[in-house]
């Protein structure tokens, strides 16, 4: 579990158009520069918004990743709800501060 590096990858991705192109072309190569678990790499390559939310990725990063992938706003919100149903409550980060 390396929420920090998942979020750092998304932070850099949101800022850098060149990295967005690289990530679309070869995500494994981009992710090699970050300390990520196999589960995190799979969630990122599968565009599993629900699981990324459950990891604890901040929505202010995640919504832009979703937009980059062409996921519509309502589908983005539903993907997070589905992630919680499937994987349980948020595991870390700011949304894990208090029980919902």
């Amino acid at each position: 579990m390396s929420l920090y590096y998942v979020q750092k990858l998304l932070y850099n991705l949101n800022r850098e158009p060149a990295m967005q192109r690289d990530f679309k072309a070869d995500p494994m190569r981009v992710m090699a520069d970050y300390d990520l678990t196999a589960e995190e790499k799979k969630a990122l390559t599968d565009a599993d918004i629900g699981l990324l939310y459950v990891f604890g990725v901040n929505g202010q990063l995640l919504m832009h990743f979703a937009a980059l992938l062409g996921i519509a706003w309502d589908d983005y919100l539903e993907a997070m709800r589905e992630g919680v149903r499937r994987h349980g409550p948020v595991r870390a980060g700011i949304y894990a501060l208090v029980e919902e």
């Binding site: 939310y53 929505g59 202010q60 919504m63 919100l77 709800r81 919680v84």
Partner: peptide, 14 residues
């Protein structure tokens, strides 16, 4: 100063 007051942005509670 710009911001929200109460809100749950970019989360399932948006």
């Amino acid at each position: 100063g710009t911001g929200g007051i109460s809100h749950w942005p970019a989360t399932p509670n948006s």
